[in-house]
Design a protein around this nucleic acid. Structure first.
Lengths: 107, 107
DNA sequence: AGTCGATTTCCAGAAAATGAAACAAATCGA
DNA sequence: TCGATTTGTTTCATTTTCTGGAAATCGACT
């Protein structure tokens, strides 16, 4: 199985963190905040779609909220495979950085 | 400035770790080992080229070794910008994972 | 010269990322 | 009720990256 790309990883992490608030616009905002980079809608929606197709994510259409413009949101959530993929990339990243962190940052 | 892609990150880390032994074939082997995934030559060479073009890496042609077939290797090394990029992605990853690591792995 | 082996470099097709625009549905106010 | 406004999703064309494999290099050996 392939490793997650960067945006796949970020999208999965944001979904995990946002729980029942995990819909496209929120996910994008969260990722933009944390990375200090502007992410366009396409850059979030494309991986969301792909991850759903591969069954690392599922989604349901929520009821609409009574705010102005508050239409139905598509709420995403992690599948067991999504969690596994996150755990795997986390392990690989850790191994890849092992021993280098302190040295690099001090140098 | 853009964030590093996954393969860019891995390539930079491998170069950093391998020091004077950081040439294409070695880099590929190292990354394949740690990730448990087969990386083709193209998958390593392409980011090496791109990172060099962007001045996150430099390279020199080493003297050849006296083994049979031992032609000159191209040895890569990190530039200050390369180190900065690594530090940056590390910070972002840390923020992105903050608080989630234990929960995810236990769940 | 010819062959072998280590290594680099090129290339074409596939996949992913990007930015912008189109589409949809709910609310509000005149 | 109708149009303007707001929140949200989806589509699309273009560019950038990734991928696997094949070709080109070049030193060493015979």
């Amino acid at each position: 199985m392939k490793l997650l790309t960067r945006s796949e990883e970020f999208v999965l992490l944001a979904v995990w963190r946002l729980q029942q608030d995990a819909y496209t616009l929120n996910i994008r905002e969260r990722i933009s905040e944390i990375t200090s980079v502007e992410w366009s809608l396409g850059s979030i929606f494309t991986p969301l779609e792909r991850l759903t197709r591969r069954r690392l994510l599922t989604s349901i259409l929520s009821g609409s909220t009574p705010e102005r413009g508050g239409r139905k949101k598509r709420i995403y959530s992690l599948t067991p495979d999504g969690k596994k993929a996150l755990i795997r990339i986390h392990r690989v990243e850790k191994a890849m950085w092992s021993g280098l962190t302190e040295i690099l940052i001090r140098s």
